[in-house]
Amino acid sequence: MKILVAVKRVIDYNVQIRVKDDGTGVVTDNVKMSTNPPDDNAIEEAVKIKESGKAKEVVAITIGDDKAQETVRKALAVGADRGIHVKVEGIIEPLAVSKILKKIVEKESPDLVFMGKQAIDDDCNQTGQMLAAILNWPQATFASKIDVKEKSLEVTREIDEGLETIEVNIPAIVTCDLRLNEPRYASLPNIMKAKKKPLEQLNASDLGVDTKARIEQIKVEEPPKRKAGIKVASVSELVQKLKNEAKVI
């Protein structure tokens, strides 16, 4: 079995986001970037399945500018076998990402594609579902547990009401929740070894995918700020304020 894992490079989740003064986006210069957090879970799960003997190969793919390769290198350092970088410049929407991934799926014929449930920059939560749609594959979204069976996966999904379990036939798309596993850290020797693993480079245009934006970003602004609050000295003061000032209890 072969597992393809999609990893995206995003602003690190610890960074305090700043909106650009001209309203065209957020500041990314000199800002720490990392792999989108649930994509680390996706890689971890694929590597674990490989270690269990149920998969032979894990291929990591990213779509973005040259620097996006860092995320693939990191995936290689924690156990992926091979990397693919599809080069595009600028913002690329989930629909276009899913079309590029479809081309790669046709080329690589993986049995499973793992991805994160949501990219923490655009917060779209779309790409996996879109890829599943255009491949006409089943989708197991928001996965917090995966059981690999003979020809299917049993997946526990995190939904608003609690948990749901579904069984999807292979080939399938899985989008991963942070609770799926605990991603390992890359050791220094493994980081060095990863530099020697193969990383193939392609251009989106060579794949014949139109990546033109369909959504115009008119402006990006800071959200309204909350008025500064006060500290109360005691529980009784808190209750009095809630009752008499805020009138919420």
């Binding site: 629909l95 779309q126 579902q129 890829l131």
Partner: peptide
Amino acid sequence: TFGKNLMPRVAALMDTSQISD
């Protein structure tokens, strides 16, 4: 989780770039 799971599947087959949330 209902709409997040569903809508992109619909959007992709309509070749539409979804606007989320």
